[in-house]
């Protein structure tokens, strides 16, 4: 082979030869949803946990409708928050252990875009089912129709924020063997503002005031989390990968 002979292999241009951002996000989403459907207990465990936590309050505190009506929104929010927390440790752990995360970090697309797709899949598999289950549990706690509707709306805006904030904690602790507890300690303080606004909105609605301001603030939190959390999680994942 001569020194000047051309070879049949060329350097590839990432823009023209690899799939676009949207396509690669859809691929990640599709894979993760497929995995959730095949791993049914991962899908069911947070839901069962949610139902049980909520059921503990009437049993442990008081089954009086007065108390439950007042505390119902808070109970459901705390239940949803803990159920989300329970599922977070799995968000990146399996991908980290089997090498999928390495391959994602090496894709030509920026990692935060793929992390956003993963977080969306996480919310679709855990947050959304929690929201769907809420009306039933709300009625169990004697909440009236209007409160249940507002509660579902706040959870619909709030649970994606929980998944997004949680993704940062999960990314930071993915390389640790016993990361679960540390993850809770890291993430719970960051969940507090979401919880306060979530329950506050339902209280305000029950008190008869206009809640559009509350909802707008929650939506602002969601927007902020959508923009910032994937960036932070991607940076944390790179650190976790670099140390492995």
């Amino acid at each position: 082979m001569g020194q000047q002979q051309s070879l049949s292999i060329t350097v590839l241009d990432p823009v023209t030869t690899s799939p676009g951002l949207f396509q690669s996000m859809v691929a990640v989403l599709q894979r993760d949803l497929r995995l959730s459907i095949r791993q049914k207990q991962d899908l069911l465990n947070p839901l069962l946990f949610f139902v049980m936590v909520v059921a503990l309050f009437p049993l442990g505190v008081s089954p009086e409708s007065e108390f439950l009506k007042e505390a119902g929104a808070g109970i459901l929010w705390v239940g949803a928050l803990l159920a989300t927390l329970l599922s977070l440790d799995h968000l990146f752990r399996f991908d980290y252990e089997d090498g999928t995360l390495e391959q994602m970090a090496l894709q030509p697309q920026p990692l935060f875009v793929l992390v956003l797709a993963k977080t969306l899949a996480h919310w679709l598999a855990t947050g959304l089912p929690l929201v769907i289950l809420t009306p039933m549990l709300g009625m169990m706690l004697f909440l009236d129709g209007n409160s249940v509707a507002i509660l579902c709306l706040t959870l619909l805006i709030g649970t994606p924020v929980l998944s997004l904030i949680g993704s940062v904690g999960a990314a930071l602790t993915v390389g640790l063997r016993a990361g679960g507890v540390l993850l809770s300690l890291l993430v719970i303080p960051l969940y507090i503002p979401v919880l306060i606004f979530g329950t506050g909105t339902v209280m305000a609605a029950a008190g008869g005031s206009d809640v559009s301001g509350h909802l707008a603030l929650m939506a602002a939190m969601l927007m902020l989390a959508v923009i910032l959390a994937p960036l932070a999680a991607a940076a944390a994942l790179k650190i976790s990968l670099s140390a492995s």
Binding site: L12, S18, R31, R34, L35, G99, T100, E102
Partner: peptide, 17 residues
């Protein structure tokens, strides 16, 4: 990233797929 393919000893194979 586009021009370098890395296959580690954990190659990213999912047991459920």
């Amino acid at each position: 990233r586009r021009n370098v393919l890395y296959l580690g000893h954990r190659p990213g194979i999912k047991m459920l797929l």
